[in-house]
């Protein structure tokens, strides 16, 4: 499988120093977990030193589309379409969102739209059982450690969840061996600019409600037998949907 990992020139949120984006590092890890034989990093923009760090995480080759920063989607799409003529990538992987720019996480979606490819999002890992060639089975990460299976047709774009555990280790020797290649992107007109006023972030608290100790009354059982009490609890929990039905409980144990 041939995979392309989209790379951005990110910054460390704490220090503001140039740093690889966690999601993109995970994308490299996911590409490896998917068994990608060829793995190329692709950056829409001129090369910057920080990109070499992705080499440390396992990329042997990084292609920088200089001039591509004006309209990254167009530049990336052009590159990928051109590449398809030679050896088509099966997979384009990206982080959930960049770190240091607009950080909207929109780019992979736009790229998929432009290429006419499907996009699978928030992926943490491949599923163990893979379907026949031409499709991919992936685990989408959900809150509270849950996962959702996603089947997607190749070629496709995949964004990697920030919760994914597939973080490759950093190897300095690989970093210094990485080939960062500048390639001139075709001249594209300036993409849309975000409007409004850019200023330092002011941290605002999240909503909290007024502290309360009381509450509204509900069902009340006084001095039931333990059996009645247990049965009532089980029935109540079932009605809330927090306790799996008996048959589900036994089947979930087996999985």
């Amino acid at each position: 499988m041939k995979a392309i990992v989209l790379l951005s020139a990110g910054i460390d949120p704490v220090s503001g120093r140039p740093a690889p984006v966690g999601g993109e590092v995970r994308a490299i890890g996911l590409a490896r977990a998917l068994g990608a034989k060829t793995l190329i990093g692709l950056h829409a923009g001129a090369s910057v030193p920080a990109l070499a760090d992705y080499g440390g995480y396992g990329l042997k080759e990084i292609i920088c589309l200089s001039g591509g920063e004006h309209d990254p989607v167009a530049a990336l799409a052009q590159f990928l379409i051109r590449a398809s003529n030679v050896s088509a990538p099966d997979l384009v992987l990206a982080g959930t969102r960049g770190c240091g720019g607009a950080d909207t996480g929109l780019l992979p979606y736009r790229l998929a739209e432009k290429l006419g490819w499907p996009i699978a999002t928030g992926i943490a890992a491949p599923l163990e059982e893979q379907p026949a060639a031409g499709r991919l089975a992936l685990a989408q990460a959900r809150a509270r450690g849950a996962v959702r299976p996603v089947h997607v047709t190749l070629p496709c774009v995949v964004t990697v969840s920030d919760m994914a555990e597939c973080v490759p280790s950093f190897v300095f020797a690989d970093k210094r061996a990485v080939q960062v290649r500048d390639e001139r992107a075709e001249r594209t007109p300036q993409g849309e600019m975000e409007e409004g006023l850019l200023r330092p972030y002011r941290r605002r608290p999240k909503l909290i409600s007024a502290a309360r100790t009381g509450g509204t009354g509900g069902q009340l059982l006084v001095d039931p037998t333990p059996e009645e009490a247990a049965a009532a609890i089980i029935a109540h929990l079932r009605s809330l949907g927090v306790l799996a039905a008996a048959d589900e409980a036994s089947s979930s144990k087996m999985t």
């Binding site: 460390d12 704490v14 220090s15 120093r17 740093a19 690889p20 760090d53 950093f170």
Partner: peptide, 12 residues
């Protein structure tokens, strides 16, 4: 240390 020049990732 590489990314924020501080081993705990804390602000300098």
């Amino acid at each position: 240390l590489r990314e924020s020049a501080e081993s705990g990732g804390r602000p300098l």
